[in-house]
Every structure is written in C-alpha cells, then in structure tokens.
Amino acid sequence: MDYLAQQLINGLTLGSIYGLIAIGYTMVYGIIGMINFAHGDVFMVGAFVSLICILIFGITGSTDIVIGIGLLMIVAVIAMAISGVYGWTIERLAYRPLRGSFRLAPLITAIGVSIFLQNFVQETQGARVKPLQALFAGGFTLHEGTEFTVRITYMQILIVVLTIVLMTGFSLLISRTSLGRAQRACEQDLKMTQLLGIDVDRTISMTFVIGAMLAAVAGLMYLLYYGVIDFFIGFSAGVKAFTAAVLGGIGSLPGAMIGGVLIGLIEVLFAAYFSSEYKDVAAFSMLIIVLIFMPQGLLGRPEIEKV
C-alpha cells in the first residue's frame, strides 16, 4: 500500500512533466494538423538552458531554499524565453514556407529539425550525460510504514505546484485573451480566420512559442527531478508526451494534462511492478491501444468522416 502511494506520487510528478510537453503537441496539431516532431528536442534545449543557468547562478544543494526557489524561477523565465525563440525560429524557417504544400513535407522537415537539434546540442555540449547535484534534497515524510516510507520531496512539490500555476495561467490565456480567441478560431477554420482579418501567421507563431515555453519549464523540471540530462532525452519524452496528447484527446488542453498524468502513472507503475527495462514499451503500447480503440482520446471530439 505504502509502496503504491509512493509510486502514485512519483507518477504524478513525472506526469506533470509529460503534460506540459503534451500541450505543445496538442496545440500545434489542433491548429495546423501537424505533428511537430521537433517539439521533444525543444524540451531538451530547455533542459540544457536551465542547466546552464543553474550553473551560472551557482545554485547548489547548499543554497538557501527561499533564494534557491527564487533563482529557479528566474532560470525558468530565461529557459522559457530562449526556448520560445527556438520554437519561433523552427516554425518560421522550417514549417511556414511549407504550409499548404505537400502534406509529408513539413513532417520531413520536422524530423530533419529534430535530428539537427539533437546533433547540434551533442556537438556543442558534448555527448556525455550531464549530472547535476541534487538541489533541495529534503522532503516530507508522509507515512512511516514498517518496510517502506512514503516521502514527497520538496522538488516534487515544486514540480506539481509549478505545473498547476502554469496550467491555470495558460488556461486563462486561452480563454480570456484575444490571442487565445484567435488560436481557438484558427483551430476551427484556418482559412476563415484569415479572411476575418486575423493574422494567422502570427497566431501560429505564438502557438509554437507558447508550446516551446511550456516545454522549457518541463525541461527544467526534468533536470531537477532526474538530475541528469543528455542530448537524447527529447526523443522518448517527446513520443510519450505525444502519447499523452493523443490519450487526452488531441486538441484538448485539459486532455493533454490528464493524458500526461496518466502516462506518467502508467510508466512509473509498470516500472515499479513489472519491469523498468520495458517501461517504454508500456508507454508506446498505450499509444497504440488508445489509437486503435479510442482514437478521439478521453476528451477529444469524435470525428465524423466527411463524404
């Protein structure tokens, strides 16, 4: 029981990270109907930017926790800004010129960008994994059992709280601002939105920027949670986050978050009870099962085939 409770806490934390990445997939897919293959690598860049900032600011395990969290917020903002520029540039250079062209073309460029980013970071940052000392190692003991102790670390609290804050802010952005309205309009009908005088290019660019920003925060969290990153983390995190987006219902923002948490839980529970080597298989199989039996996802709209 205690063991299960601990796994649920871990799964929730991991799921928050996947959920934040999944939003980028779901928004882009919702608007231009394309799988932004490079999104996972933007997440990876976000993790690297965070690592660099943490090193520059000199945040270590012995930093005072209040100052440390304050500095981490600054790190998050910087990572968001820089990743946002990555997102914008990718869309501008690799996707926009191909919009409305041959359907496979943007997918190929997306794969190209993904390969490029991975190898660019590998080349410039080195192929070795980057270990970061654990920050804020403490935590609360929730329940002390005879064999197993359930703990929630400060880091896990930070991750979950930050995710909730970002999600709230993001939902407000979508529901209250004119940018959010424009995005929802683009999702319904890109051409009509354009005819109504809305700058569709700008809206799409902003979608990529916002997605990249959320992925950057997820990158920071991943770095803090696991303490090691390398240039290749974007691939499997990206596929799992995409799974989360599909599971939640592609195009649905709360769906992405719920899907993220579910995938996080599945992965952690599978690793805990069955085999940690096959945990990726569990997540990928989930994707296949969901797509076959529930292609519209949990919160997505079912599609009626237009004849």
Binding site: L93, A94, L98, A105, I108, T109, I111, G112, V113, S114, I115, F116, L117, Q118, N119, F120, Q122, E123, A127
Partner: peptide, 15 residues
C-alpha cells in the same frame, strides 16, 4: 557527428 547534423539540415533544406 557533424554528418548527422548536416544530414538533418539537408533534410530541411532539400524539402
């Protein structure tokens, strides 16, 4: 390593 980097770049450029 650079060859993979250029490979990615080439995919984008040729597309």
């Amino acid at each position: 390593q650079l060859r993979l980097l250029l490979f990615g770049l080439a995919m984008v450029v040729v597309m």
